[in-house]
Design a protein around this nucleic acid. Sequence first.
DNA 1: GTTACATATGAACAATCATTCATATGAGGT
DNA 2: ACCTCATATGAATGATTGTTCATATGTAAC
Lengths: 122, 122
Amino acid sequence: MNQSKNTVCDVTVIHEDVVKKVKNELPHSQEVKKCASLFKILGDHTRFKIITTLLKEEMCVCDISYLLDMSQSLISHQLRVLRDARLVKHRREGKVVYYSLDDSHIEKIVKYGFDHIKESSE
Amino acid sequence: MNQSKNTVCDVTVIHEDVVKKVKNELPHSQEVKKCASLFKILGDHTRFKIITTLLKEEMCVCDISYLLDMSQSLISHQLRVLRDARLVKHRREGKVVYYSLDDSHIEKIVKYGFDHIKESSE
DNA sequence: GTTACATATGAACAATCATTCATATGAGGT
DNA sequence: ACCTCATATGAATGATTGTTCATATGTAAC
């Protein structure tokens, strides 16, 4: 957490003006944390695959499980993580629970993610 | 990896039509993997903070380390991860190494990330 | 009530990964 | 050659987390 004695930079600051400027323009600490957490949730293969299946259609747990060839338990666990993060919402219809994306930003974020992949892959 | 015997969904598929449709529209497996990996890299607090400092100015390792109050070693390690993922580029000027963002998509992805945070936080 | 099906969840394990410490490399100055 | 500063990196450790297994909950039908 705090600077260790080996740290060079607790003494020398090379560009004070730049540091000051950037420090003032930095997003608030709490927003940064939340945003990183959002990406962390998107950054798991299983969860991200689930999201790609929900991009166009709402689906029930069983269908997702079948489509991705993953156990129902695993899908349920990760859907809960996605729910807690408010990335997906669910509605119950009898025994079946349908999941869908809860936020339009997610689609855009995912889209730009794919753009980055396609551009930097040659 | 493969379906365990407890899995319900290796037998029952509830919405065959939906499953088929979604399956055809799914992005290619390799792209999905790469994209999830991208978000994983963004999803670490330290790395994400580094990126926020580079949003407007290029900075040297020492400045980043000072600004974020983190050890030089930690910053260097994570900058290497960001370099390997082609999210940042570097240029050397004498002893000092300057880092900056390597891709304009990153700014957009980060921007939409913050949008999501602001919208879903009331 | 019981049975069957769809989903959720708790606990345990395995594997990943961020951080620290110590040391190495690279570059300019003397 | 040396010394100093800025950065990089290897190894080890501690903590986080994805996955599995077993079991529980909720719902409809009988």
